[in-house]
Amino acid sequence: MSIAVRPGRTISSTTIVFAVLVLAIVAGTIITAVNGRNFFSVGNIDNVLTTMTILGLIAVGQTLVILVGSLDLSVPFVVSLASVTAGGIMAGQTGRILPAVLVTLLIAAVIGLANGLIVSYLHVHGFIATLGTGLILAGYLASNFEGNQGAAPRAFRLLDATRIGPVPIATLIMLGCALLAILMLRRTRLGHHIYAVGGHAEVARMSGVRTATPIIAAHVICTVLSAVAGLLLLARLGVGQPTVGSQGGYDLMSIAAVVLGGTLLSGGKGNIVGTLAGVAIFAVLDNVMGVMQLNPFLKDVVRGVVIVVAVAVYARREIDRRPARFGSASPIPQEVR
């Protein structure tokens, strides 16, 4: 029943997100033109895409975690940890790139596994579980690393510097990960289970879904994608920085981007495409404010207002649509029986 209803809802929800994005781009183009510049110039597009890359990767992972009904507040510290670990292992030598990347992704996967296990087996709210693991990592980072760590060899830094046409390789990696995540959500059993558990964990369990598996998988994918983001930041900066993640505020900003993309914060409804649009809205907004030479502190004010206003527009729609899902005939308990 829910499968029959979902396509119509998804399209309409994503349509609004993209309408907002188009609106932002149009407004951005006009404002940029008034300032005597071209929004669609190669340099400017490159700027927007670069801004999108890191937050986009993290937000794709965050989407999965939110869809399954959890949250991940540990991402900024995973980003930092990935950056210092990989930087330290590489130490400027090209031959060490592969082991560094593998070790970093493995560590991230272990952190994600811990998050997932705490959420699914200890029944700790995702907010608290990942706040806790995030704090644990923060303490570890603050105690063991001070200042820049290691160095990325030139071959690794090319990852950030190389472009195919106007598109940086890093952005392509982000889009590739997003595509894989979309395929996973639409085509695999795991993807459907993520929606099922996020929609109603108890109903999913009674329908024979192992609820722990999608929760753990979503958390592992999220931290691994955050580690990829940390690796890309290492490629961009050339050195590992223990504060690079927390400075970016990626935890709350990625959640904001996901919700801006039309995904329900309580889980079970939403998609990656909307999230990418949400990230793009942030990137366009940032870019335009940069062109306007707005005070960087005022940027935060604008961001805050945009988040609340945009989500208010979708939120009203969710309320209208909610009864369709849990209709008065309440078909779900009957199916269960």
Partner: peptide, 23 residues
């Protein structure tokens, strides 16, 4: 009234107030 999740509302308020204070 607007039915925005409080997580998002107060996150927006946090960004706006922090930005304003810093400005």
């Amino acid at each position: 009234i607007l039915k925005v999740p409080s997580f998002i509302v107060t996150l927006g308020m946090m960004l706006a107030l922090t930005g304003l204070v810093r400005y």
